[in-house]
Design a protein around this nucleic acid. Sequence first.
DNA 1: TTGTAGGCGTTATCAG
DNA 2: CTGATAACGCCTACAA
Lengths: 364, 364
Amino acid sequence: MANMKEIARIAGVSLGTVSNVLNGSARVRDPLRRRVEEAVQSIGYQPSALARGLRRDKTNMIGMVIPDVTNPFFPAVIRGAEDVAFSNGYRLVLCNTDNDHVKELAHLNELRTYLPAGLIVIPSNFSDLTKQAESYQRNGAAVVCIDRLPKRWQGDSVTVANEHGAAAVTRHLIRLGHQRIAVIAGPLHLTNSEQRLRGFRRAMSEAGLPVPPEYVQETSFDVPGGRAKAMLLLRLLPRPTAIFAANDMIAMGVIEATRSLGLQCPGDLSIVGFDDLEFASLLNPSLASVFQPGYQLGATAARLLLDRVRGDTSPARHIVLETELRIRESVAPPVDASQPPQRRKAATASPPGTKKRTSTRRRS
Amino acid sequence: MANMKEIARIAGVSLGTVSNVLNGSARVRDPLRRRVEEAVQSIGYQPSALARGLRRDKTNMIGMVIPDVTNPFFPAVIRGAEDVAFSNGYRLVLCNTDNDHVKELAHLNELRTYLPAGLIVIPSNFSDLTKQAESYQRNGAAVVCIDRLPKRWQGDSVTVANEHGAAAVTRHLIRLGHQRIAVIAGPLHLTNSEQRLRGFRRAMSEAGLPVPPEYVQETSFDVPGGRAKAMLLLRLLPRPTAIFAANDMIAMGVIEATRSLGLQCPGDLSIVGFDDLEFASLLNPSLASVFQPGYQLGATAARLLLDRVRGDTSPARHIVLETELRIRESVAPPVDASQPPQRRKAATASPPGTKKRTSTRRRS
DNA sequence: TTGTAGGCGTTATCAG
DNA sequence: CTGATAACGCCTACAA
């Protein structure tokens, strides 16, 4: 409807002048510039994003490709990305892949026809976007992978310190006196999942504690998975005194299993999660967890992307954000079988026959 | 890079033929059609969404304008809309407004320059999008409002039966024997909030139960708000025996307040929420709530929108989705003063001077 | 400094 | 049924 020609007519100038005013591409003298600006105001003109994109070979859209917006960890990531994008004049096109790399591919291929400025991708299972990314980059669009990375990903990335966070929370359990600690990992083909398991193993091995194979379970990142694997773990003899769940949904499943077996948390079992979703602190007992800065993850990715869009051609960057331990009521020292319980349901001691090593007690 | 001209060259046909094959706009004979299709396959050609949109005056984008993606109720709505949109070849552009109608306006104005097929809007506070919507509709784009409606909204809408759901859950409390029921409403300038309060009042008045002004609190839809108002309510004399929270976040705040005052739920206080977010069933005690079909809300809106896009010009439709009562552990009959307390520390008495009316006990 | 023309990739129109 | 051509709105040379 309203186009540049209209503005030019109203302001009594030529098309080129309008364009120059709009894009600051050339100095336009004040009287004319003023007339153009007034014309723009008067009819609320906004340039066509389509025509502009077609002409410039690039739009102000950023494709945000994620597995599933209803996964409670992702909204914060999206929000972080959107805030940075919006305040820099960019918009987010949201695509859910359902962890299906075919759907992911479809999105990637179609998104390209919008000539987006870039892509922020949380890769789906088994995705190998190297080829796609190259194709985007040839078109001058940047691609940033976040949260987890495809195998052999060489491009820009923003992730969190999964291994470090997992190790830290495991060490905390060990310091409290736990020796039989089980882990319920997420799908191990996901890099973040695998890193968390690695961190767990590292902390255990540093402390000289054994990790029997049956103490390591793998499941999907959800409540039913956590419940099922917890039922299994809690029937083992000897029973673990603590479980590290690879995310809060799994931890939630563990809590349910604990409850349904009539066990107390943290009395009989300490539970820790990962993510620190909003509800973790609202549970009863409140859930100890490793906080992941979801908002920062998205915001950082967007900033990195915009740097690239603006011409930063430095080598690929791999930004790793810190996690943070959030200790809450769901963890406590293990109960010692050899001593009578001191309080109603909390007591601490090393079970007999346990090798006790002094932990290094790193303070940071 | 790859464009229609290229396809035409490879297939040895003219541009128009390619276009006709791609859009089915005219019957093309098999040999040629085949050649075109092969050419398209061979180089993985996809038409430029930009050029197509510019030419057709409409893209396959749908603007999804919501207050805040990190509000835990919205992701399901988004997902519902995205699924329907995607499977029909449409894409979602996500815009957070932070309930700021200035930001909302900015998004609306800018979104228009993409020539989206339509808009799905969860209006921000105090927004009056009538003018904006008209402008979109003049451009052939449809606008559907969901969840809550701007004042005087005349266009298509999809909402849930807020009043009915609130009345149903209130009646349930009444049937259990509660007489002193307080409500913590959401911001009353939001239509959904106001409807829930209305439903509550209706059920109470049907049962002939009084609703003292101090039993009606208003707050924002979040945990701190719920906690603060609950602290206030729980110090009143006589204390309410049940609280209806206008959403689950508020209910969560009520639970926290209850705990911090050393009261038992449901022993001393029954609590019900609204939304039935995923975590509601995971709390301890599990939270009774009124389920809102978030996914359906989004999916229905997208379907309605697509109907319009495809030329449905029937009068504005106002679709109202059913809610569903999810009774869980957080509700129980009130403890009667005339009987000895049954549990360890639930003891509540009707303070002297309370009018006791027999409830009408309606069954539905 | 200001105005003008060409083309981005597509679709629609119209002549063959 | 097929093939050439004009527009969609904008940006960017280039000419004045």
